[in-house]
Design a protein around this nucleic acid. Structure first.
Lengths: 188, 188
DNA sequence: ACCTGAACACCGTTCAAGT
DNA sequence: ACCTGAACACCGTTCAAGT
């Protein structure tokens, strides 16, 4: 027995984290496992499926006691690995990978609220990752060119911005609850 | 004089709309223009730049009189072409391509409000496009497998969901305005 | 069950050369 | 200025064959 399916996923996540999504080819995964490219197809039907499995792994175990901490945990998971937000978004985790998180959130803030929070969280994480990467390269977007902003300061700013966005959405959801006077957990 | 840069962009958008993002190769663009692949590099430095120009074109002219209509117009623009949401999102239009729309929105609901609305709109459009595509193929996500949902009904449902999400965010923004008692246009 | 080796039909990009 | 032709270093995927 040589490699298992999980070995492939772990190796692929290693390539993703150290080299980025653009270097995530089946052939690169193969050299990471010291194996021929064709060997991967014994564990996975195609590249798309492998990317979806990677997305599932990235998002696995995300949870929390309240909507804010769930969204923060999800964002942290997406940011914990290079190009994580892109991978999870592209793998259409909107419906599949994160759907465990979605039903979890839905129990707290309802279907519509869960969807709104999730879509915002994904978009904000994707934007955050893009901006942090651009900052590292030195491809600054002119508005922050002169300002000597450290990476840490930028990251902190984007995280604060995220929290404010979540607060806005939750405030909006609260007004809806006032409108119909029900708690989500009471509906059916 | 044979082809101009705009010819290349138009041809590329044609390939995108009729074949989808996965068939958007420089070589396909070249056959669409009846030209050798290398000829494209006279008009554009690389594929990434061409995709960014396509994204700018997709989002060009988006505007409106109030936040709701701006967001709707943006979503419609993203949905008006196959894989449009993916192309614009990947081209990091979060900061560049849509930034005209962002400053426009910021004048109405403030920086944080604009960002929240935009990130939600992008995410929702991307999700909508993914689901509509899956529905066309017949790759139904099991929950709507039995339900005989027409594509039009699904699209209408997703649009209604979008409107509700926007309403939630705007309601949240309204509570913030009440809190500090200022209108955005009065700040500074 | 897991892998190799070879092959097929593709990629993006460069560069000398043509008009 | 705009394009061709040829080349380079890659892709994802298939399939017979090995152990």
């Amino acid at each position: 027995m040589r490699n298992t399916r999980d070995d492939v996923i772990v190796a692929a996540l290693g390539v993703l984290d150290t080299h980025g999504l653009e270097f995530c080819s089946m052939r690169r995964f193969a050299v990471a496992l010291d194996v021929q490219p064709s060997a991967l197809y014994h564990h996975v039907p195609n590249k798309q499926t492998l990317l979806a499995l990677m997305a599932d792994e990235i998002v696995r175990g995300v949870g929390g006691d309240d909507p804010v901490s769930v969204c923060r945990a999800l964002r942290n998971a997406l940011l914990s690995i290079r190009d994580g937000a892109d991978v999870v978004a592209t793998a259409s985790a909107f419906r599949l990978g994160a759907s465990a998180v979605e039903t979890y959130l839905a129990g707290m803030v309802g279907d519509e609220g869960a969807r709104t929070l999730l879509l915002y969280t994904f978009g904000q994480a994707q934007s955050t990752q893009t901006q942090l990467q651009a900052h590292e390269i030195g491809a600054l977007p002119a508005e922050v060119a002169a300002s000597e902003l450290t990476p840490e300061a930028l990251e902190a700013e984007l995280t604060t911005s995220f929290d404010r966005g979540i607060a806005i959405i939750l405030a909006g959801l609260a007004t809806q609850h006032e409108a119909d006077g029900t708690d989500e957990r009471e509906k059916r």
